[in-house]
Each structure stands twice: as C-alpha cells, then as structure tokens.
Nucleic acid binder design. Structure first.
Lengths: 159, 159
DNA sequence: CATCTGACTAGCGTCAACGCAAGTCAGCCC
DNA sequence: GGGCTGACTTGCGTTGACGCTAGTCAGATG
C-alpha cells in the first residue's frame, strides 16, 4: 500500500482520532484548563481566575474533563483547613503535553506579538528550548514532506 | 528565577501563545479542515463532504482561515473547465502538522475504539510510525517531567 | 452558634455556531 | 441560449457556550 491520500474518497474519517481528540479538548477553554493543569494548578478558584472563565462555565468544563478522565478529583487537607478537593492530572491528561507544546510552538512562531513569546519551555538538564518535533520509531527526524499516510487496523473503507 | 510555576500568579497569560493558537484553530471544524488540507484536499466541495460540515459553515470557516493566513485561494484551470479557485496551504498552515500529529497520537492512544487507529503516519524512508515527540535544541529527548517553564521576552508580570 | 471562606449551583439573557432549504452566479456544453 | 455544475450566499430556526448575579452548603474559627 502506498499512500492513502492518493484515493482520499475511498476511506472515511468516521473514527478519526483527531476528531475524537477535538471532541474532548477541542475548545479554547478546555485546552486552557489543561494548560493550567500542566502548569500545576489544582484548585477550582485558581482555575477560574487563571483561565479567565466564569465559575459556572468552569464548573461545567471541569466536570467534562473529569468524565473524560483527563482530571481526577482528589480529597486533600491543608493544616487547619477542612477537607477539600483538588483536580489532578491523570496519565491521559498528562500525555496532552506534546499537543500543548506543539500549539505553543506554533503560536510563538505565528501569533506572538513583537515582544516575543511570554514563556519558554526548556530542558531541565541543558536549559535549551523544548519543541514538539516529528520523529519516527527508529529515531529519525521526519520532515514535513516525508510523511506517508497508510491504512491502520481501524480503517473504514467507503462503499 | 528558576521555574515560573513556583509563583504562578506573578505573571499573566494575556499574550499566551496557546490561547492565540486556539483562537485561530481551536474549534473542531477549523482543525478538521486543516487535517483535510494536510491530506491534500483543495476544493470547496471536497472540504464540505470530507469534513462533514454544511456549505454555509464551511464557507465561513474557510474565509476565517484565509484571513488568518493558513490557506490561500489560488486560481487554477482544469482542461475544458473554467477557471476555479482552490485552497492551498501556506507555510503557516503547513506548520500545523506537529499539532495535528500530536493530536492524532493522543487520540490513537486514548480515544480510538477496539479496532485501533484508522490511519497511521509513517516515515517515507523507513516505514516506521511518526510521532510528535518532545526534544530540545541540542537534540535530547525530553521527558514529560524534565520541562521547565521560564520567562520569555514577552512575559507580562502581574502588578 | 454565628460567621466566613472555598467551592460550587441556579436562573437568567446574549451571542455565535451550525443545519437545512433555497437562491445565485459564472461560464462551458450542446 | 437553456441547462448543468461547482462554488458559494441568504434566510431561517435551534442549540450550546458563556457572562452576570445571586444563592447554597460544609465545615473550621471566634
């Protein structure tokens, strides 16, 4: 099999992973909540003022992200305080980091103002900037033009 | 200053690159249009039936993506046909490939059904699967836990 | 026991996204 | 020159996202 793009209409996107991902984190607010969660935010009120969403909207979004399994609601207790709940990333949520990083890279390049990007992600061990780069399982760097699209096990062919 | 996460409320996300990116391609339909464009789709009607959006909505989305500079409207002429226009990716649009790839990776892992992912991106030269991976400018692979967030030139500090 | 704080919920009103149905418009084809 | 096709536009109505204001609720604190 060569490249599925050569006969695009012979297969369907009914179970497209990109569409499914967008159904879960494909809104501005959901993605910004995940940005905050990856920056370490855990409490409801902090999400509200750091993301810039109203309380009712935030409560609804967090509920969706809990239901989708990106966040967990964990009880905790600060000394002298009553038991509360915090929103912690699950593995499913933590693995959005490459998506967020790729979005930040793109925004830094194409949507930042003249001053430049507000924050930089760096490699703790060497201090150099981190990017989401394409590479194959053998470790090769993959150029934009060197990607083939081939059938996967879940491919749905059109009738 | 080491890691900005240690004092999260001392700086603002007013010019966040992630938020800006989401303003442009942060809707399900915009992202699916970019998916199709990266798969080679160029004509209006093909976008309509491959993305599964109505004609009015598609016309509006395409206009936004043209205005944002992700697509260009280029005249072309098939033999025996009149001049038409096709939507071609610009460099700005093409550089969304890491974002789309990261989203597909995540969806393949966390949102695919039992059959598995419908399509696979492979490296043309070796045939192995392509992923969006974190790496620094020195070429190191970067682990999820090894990312620092430090001030960039455009950082806005809170008052 | 009343108060206070963090974390919500309830009830509006508004605005944007989208589907559907129908109309338009330009030019090749017969 | 009347149809046909591809690429839209116009005009509904519906649904969902969100802001705002106000109310609730649980438990430590005074």
């Amino acid at each position: 099999m060569t490249d599925l793009r050569d006969d695009r209409d012979a297969w369907s996107m009914a179970n497209c992973s990109i569409a499914r991902a967008m159904d879960i984190v494909g809104s501005r607010s959901a993605m910004l909540i995940m940005r905050e969660a990856l920056l370490g935010t855990r409490r409801f009120d902090d999400f509200v003022h750091r993301v810039g969403l109203g309380e009712p909207a935030m409560a609804a979004r967090l509920k969706e992200l809990l239901a989708a399994g990106l966040l967990e609601r964990i009880p905790y207790r600060e000394p002298g305080q009553r038991t509360r709940h915090e929103y912690q990333l699950t593995r499913k949520g933590r693995e959005l980091l490459p998506v967020i990083t790729a979005l930040r890279n793109w925004g830094d390049t194409w949507a930042a103002d003249d001053a430049g990007p507000p924050v930089l992600a760096t490699h703790r061990e060497c201090g150099h900037r981190v990017r989401a780069a394409l590479r194959c399982e053998l470790g090769h760097d993959v150029d934009e033009g060197d990607v083939d699209i081939v059938a996967g096990p879940g491919l749905i062919r059109s009738t």
